[in-house]
């Protein structure tokens, strides 16, 4: 493992812990007003307080669970959708491939953020809907990658051998194609997670993501945005939290990509 990958794993590990244990680690409640507005760092409030006088550290920890949880759920769902349809398109080919690929093209032709804003403005705000919207929009990218990688494998002779043997679609997809396409998709998972995470943060920043008073890092940036004009660092704290996780995940992804590029030895 490279040093940069080790750093990435440490960062991701710390965030995973925060996400799992956030509500228990947080010294104060999620929406609890405990002090004055925008108090500086102190022993009682290590990261100060926000625009309503809530403890910043507590909200950061509560937000970790929510933000990372939603992003993770959305990414997993998008991979489930994107990979199944992508493999199906590659293995079956023909009109099914055309149908799916053109549908995905159509969906991708609409700018993601605008599309999400329209959908979320119409539908009632709830976490489930948020996850679904992000997952469906993201799955178009996963579909393209899964289909492209699978296309390269589907033309291999060993897949033809399986077809000639009379194997069913399921065997061909899961036993022949899947194991040979996994490494790039795992790397893509890390990357997609970052995008989902940033996407969620931007939606929250615009007020259509996770709804207040629930803590969420994107929303926290927006809530405290005005503090910038007073020269305070408060809005930079959740922004830094977002940035650091993105970097950490990318370090791990880079390592994984490099590893999968090398020929495999057991």
């Amino acid at each position: 493992m490279t040093p940069s990958a080790a750093i990435g794993f440490v960062i991701v590990g710390v965030y995973a812990l925060a996400a799992l244990l956030g509500p228990w680690l947080a010294p104060y409640g999620e929406a609890e007003i405990v002090a004055d507005v925008w108090e500086p760092f102190s022993a009682a409030h290590p990261l100060g307080t926000d625009n309503l006088g809530r403890d910043m550290l507590s909200r950061l920890l509560w937000g970790a669970t929510r933000t990372i949880g939603v992003a993770l759920a959305a990414t997993m769902l998008s991979f489930l959708i994107g990979m199944s349809l992508g493999y199906l398109a590659a293995v079956v080919g023909g009109w099914l491939d055309q149908l799916l690929s053109r549908a995905v093209d159509a969906l991708m032709a609409i700018p993601t953020l605008i599309f999400a804003l329209v959908v979320l403005a119409v539908l009632p705000p709830s976490v489930t809907i948020l996850v679904l919207v992000i997952a469906v929009l993201d799955s178009t990218r996963v579909f393209r990658l899964a289909r492209a990688v699978a296309m390269d494998v589907v033309v291999m002779d060993f897949v033809e051998v399986a077809r000639l043997r009379g194997e069913r679609l399921g065997w061909i997809v899961f036993r022949e194609v899947l194991p040979n396409t996994l490494p790039p998709l795992i790397a893509e998972f890390g990357l997609r997670f970052c995008f989902a995470f940033l996407f969620l943060s931007s939606l929250s920043f615009l007020g259509l993501g996770i709804q207040p008073p629930a803590a969420d890092w994107g929303g926290m940036v927006r809530d405290n945005a005005n503090a910038i004009s007073f020269g305070l660092v408060v809005p930079l704290i959740p922004a830094a939290a977002i940035a650091l996780l993105t970097i950490g995940v990318n370090l791990v992804v880079d390592w994984q990509l490099e590893r999968s590029a090398r020929p495999r030895r057991t």
């Binding site: 002779d157 060993f158 033809e160 051998v161 000639l164 036993r175 022949e176 194991p179 040979n180 495999r264």
Partner: peptide, 13 residues
């Protein structure tokens, strides 16, 4: 059928 290129006729995984 036995193929020309044994490299791609066997699933590497």
């Amino acid at each position: 059928l036995v193929y020309q290129m044994p490299d791609v006729a066997l699933n590497p995984r």
